[in-house]
Amino acid sequence: MTSEEKKKILVDFGNRFRKIRRTQDITLEDLSNMSGIAYSTIVKIEKGDINTGIANLIKLAEKLKVHPSEFFESS
């Protein structure tokens, strides 16, 4: 897998994550406070700049009340 393909996966993941968050009218700041994950980290996840760990993925999914797999599903 090329670095471009890896980046696309991260960006697609971030876009789906952002869409779920926005659909629920949850701000980045609110999600940060709810999850204990730094605001800057959540921004980087949404932009596809970092590959978050499973623990953070589960924590964010719990706070958004979705199954973690929803971050990976195409709409």
Rank of each mutant, 00 (worst) to 15 (best):
M1T: 05
M1A: 08
M1K: 03
T2C: 11
T2E: 14
S3R: 11
S3M: 09
E4L: 15
E4A: 15
E5N: 04
K6A: 14
K6N: 13
K7E: 13
K7D: 08
K7P: 00
K8V: 08
K8D: 11
I9A: 12
I9F: 09
I9Q: 12
L10R: 12
L10A: 12
F13N: 04
F13Y: 14
G14Y: 09
G14L: 06
G14H: 09
G14N: 10
G14M: 10
G14P: 07
N15R: 14
N15T: 12
N15Y: 07
R16P: 07
F17M: 11
I20H: 01
I20D: 02
I20A: 03
R21V: 07
R22F: 02
R22E: 13
R22T: 14
R22G: 01
R22I: 11
Q24D: 06
Q24R: 13
D25Q: 10
D25E: 12
D25M: 08
I26L: 00
I26D: 02
I26R: 00
T27E: 00
T27N: 01
L28C: 03
L28H: 06
E29A: 13
D30H: 06
L31T: 05
L31K: 05
L31A: 05
N33D: 10
N33G: 08
N33P: 00
M34S: 11
M34Q: 11
S35C: 02
S35V: 02
S35Y: 03
G36T: 00
I37E: 01
I37P: 01
I37T: 06
A38K: 12
A38W: 10
A38F: 10
Y39F: 13
Y39R: 07
Y39M: 04
S40C: 08
T41S: 14
I42L: 10
V43Q: 15
V43T: 09
K44T: 00
K44F: 05
K44C: 09
I45G: 05
I45E: 04
I45P: 06
I45R: 07
I45M: 09
E46H: 04
E46P: 01
E46R: 02
E46I: 03
K47D: 13
G48N: 04
G48F: 03
G48A: 11
N51S: 15
T52E: 13
T52D: 08
T52P: 15
T52K: 09
T52G: 09
G53I: 14
G53L: 13
G53N: 15
I54G: 00
I54W: 10
A55Q: 14
A55M: 15
A55D: 15
N56D: 10
L57I: 15
L57D: 07
I58A: 04
I58N: 06
K59H: 02
K59I: 13
L60T: 03
L60N: 07
L60R: 03
L60P: 08
A61H: 02
K63D: 04
K65C: 07
K65H: 10
V66N: 08
V66W: 07
H67C: 10
P68W: 04
S69W: 05
S69T: 14
S69C: 05
E70K: 12
F71L: 04
F71D: 02
F71R: 05
F71I: 04
F72C: 10
F72P: 06
F72D: 03
F72N: 04
F72K: 02
E73C: 04
S74C: 03
S75L: 15
S75E: 15
S75M: 11
S75W: 10
S75Y: 09
S75C: 11
